[in-house]
Design a protein around this nucleic acid. Structure first.
Lengths: 167, 167
DNA sequence: ACAAAATAGTTGCAAATGGAACAAAATATG
DNA sequence: CATATTTTGTTCCATTTGCAACTATTTTGT
């Protein structure tokens, strides 16, 4: 194992640990505030971003990197809370749309300030503007160089759109 | 939400997605090779790093950022496969050491080439030496600036030691 | 020294995840 | 056109995780 490879492993481990630390912290903040987990926000946000406020389950999966069986059940939970509604896709008889409901949008709005604050607190702390720019750029490279074709990697999702405008 | 904060969120999302993508890929490679998950490797490696080849469960938890109940059960699984043995800690009646067994060391050795190759393939692809250095440095900042005191954060683990020398 | 609080680890139960098998619809191939 | 293959989503089952409660030991405070 040469020196460069050691560096790579150092970065790899750092990525894993940072991620764990940060998501633990954010999930914890959400829970403290009596709010549902990040994954709910993720799904609702992705649907809400769509012009017609609906998204195929398959696309939800590819956006948030979740296997299809888990998408089914995550949407089950959201639907049970009436945050989302399922409707069959007419142009493709196999497909199912998840529509975001007003309550779903309301939840996004309610979660956002807590989520935002949490990420800013835990994530930004100590990072300079330049660091953040660098980090973005590097992670972008990581994400785009994923031709490792294990079915989950069909996505190279479109530019990350903004988080704001919940309404 | 100002422009800087948007940048932060972009980085945050990129971190989450990159992590997901990469761990999916690596876990998949391990499974393809008929090997156990990353978490096993992680625990075994942490124990193996210790001069006396043993580690308190609590310390395992703080090293790999895993809640104590999950440490208990992860060690259960390792012990069931005879990779590890539990022994009471004499200096602290509450404590339990996990000792790595020869079979545990053997597994480390067996997993390492696959793991290594997988990380190099999926992670390093596209990154320059400078990128890797930057990434390390930035993630290091993220990890060290975690005073968010929710009990899990008692750790500021010692410098990440090397991955090599399994024997 | 003693009671109160904190720490280490385990356990039980509910929830989430992963994998394989499945049904239904769409696409490809001969 | 007929049939094989792929895609989409769901379901079943086993494994893993998260949370709260619990025991045992140690530490703290008086």
């Amino acid at each position: 194992m040469n020196e460069k490879d050691e560096k790579i492993f150092e970065a790899w481990v750092a990525l894993i640990r940072s991620h764990q630390m940060l998501t633990d912290a954010v999930e914890n903040d959400l829970k403290q505030a009596g709010l549902p987990p990040l994954s709910w926000y993720d799904v609702l946000l992705e649907i809400n971003r769509e012009p017609d406020c609906r998204l195929r389950l398959q696309d939800i999966g590819s956006r948030i990197l979740l296997a299809k069986n888990n998408v089914t059940r995550l949407v089950d939970r959201l639907e049970k809370e009436k945050l989302v509604t399922r409707k069959k896709c007419k142009s493709d008889g196999r497909g199912v749309y998840a529509y975001i409901e007003p309550e779903g949008k309301a939840l996004l709005k309610k979660m956002w300030p807590i989520y935002r604050q949490s990420v800013l607190t835990h994530f930004k702390a100590g990072l300079s503007d330049k660091d953040i720019g660098n980090l973005c750029a590097i992670l972008q490279i990581l994400r785009s160089s994923a031709p490792s074709g294990t079915e989950k990697s069909e996505l190279v999702h479109g530019t990350e759109r903004n988080i704001k405008n919940v309404n």
